[in-house]
């Protein structure tokens, strides 16, 4: 695929709060191109004095959503790009983006499964694109998502995930809350470990196709845990976004 990767001016068409720290920005693109679930866009801010800041953000929307992309972005303390987007940017503003980018951390319905998705915090974003694509494509590939967050209120897309899990298409979701849990919590309450992975991955057989996205240390722990329970390395794809994103 030899395509020139050009910067273009996207217009913010909508902003939606997902959690106190996370917002979804719907961008209208003059040159929209169908993406593959798991890909990202680069976003660039430029000041009048020439200073530039650039970050990569995963696409949350399904490829089937035409003409626009949704980027779900966590506000990082001292993060100059995410702070601008959360506190300054409003509907109608224009920002420079280029994409879609990447081909490694990508899932398409044709790749099949069974599918094991593991996300930490806003690492769920590219996995959500995969799940939305799976639903839009009518795929019934057995799929399980293990999502780790600090607290119940930090679970991004919770209502949509629960609805997807109830639609009878073979998708199940598991949550683990590492910092605080509601009093009636029935999910996991610890960091992802090999025992948790064995329970969640077990019914998917010995060689599920695995996608892990989250903070670096979570990705390391999950990838090592999967190796421990015997998942072959060539079935595991990872995307790390640093200590707490940027």
């Amino acid at each position: 695929m030899n395509l020139p990767l050009q910067w273009q001016l996207a217009t913010i068409a909508a902003v939606r709060s997902e959690t106190p720290e996370v917002k979804t920005f719907s961008l209208h693109l003059p040159d929209w191109m169908r993406h593959r679930a798991g890909q990202h866009y680069d976003l660039r801010l430029r000041a009048a004095d020439g200073y530039e800041a650039q970050r990569s953000y995963s696409i949350a929307s399904a490829p089937e959503t035409e003409g626009q992309v949704q980027l779900t972005i966590e506000k990082i303390n001292d993060g100059e790009v995410s702070s601008f987007l959360h506190e300054v940017a409003v509907v109608g503003d224009r920002i420079e983006v280029r994409g879609p980018i990447g081909g490694y951390f990508v899932w398409e319905a044709a790749l099949g499964g069974p599918l094991l998705l593991i996300g930490g915090g806003s690492g769920v974003v590219p996995l959500m694109a995969m799940l939305r694509h799976r639903a839009a494509a009518g795929s019934r590939v057995p799929t399980r998502l293990l999502l780790s967050a600090r607290s119940y209120d930090d679970l991004i897309y919770r209502e949509e995930l629960d609805a997807l899990a109830a639609d009878g298409s073979g998708f199940e979701v598991f949550y683990t809350l590492t910092r605080s849990q509601p009093s009636d919590w029935h999910g996991y309450s610890r960091r992802i470990d090999a025992a948790m992975l064995a329970t969640v991955a077990g019914p998917l057989g010995r060689t599920p196709l695995c996608y892990i996205c989250g903070p670096t240390l979570l990705v390391e722990a999950a990838a090592n845990g999967l190796a421990e329970i015997g998942v072959p390395a060539n079935r595991i794809r990872t995307e790390r976004f640093g200590p707490s994103g940027s």
């Binding site: 990202h40 990569s56 280029r98 990447g102 490694y104 990872t238 790390r240 976004f241 200590p243």
Partner: peptide, 17 residues
């Protein structure tokens, strides 16, 4: 350094350009 480590996806845009 380990905690700040990313993977090749993080520079996909720069390499594509």
């Amino acid at each position: 350094n380990r905690a700040m480590m990313l993977d090749g996806n993080a520079v996909a845009g720069r390499f594509a350009a």
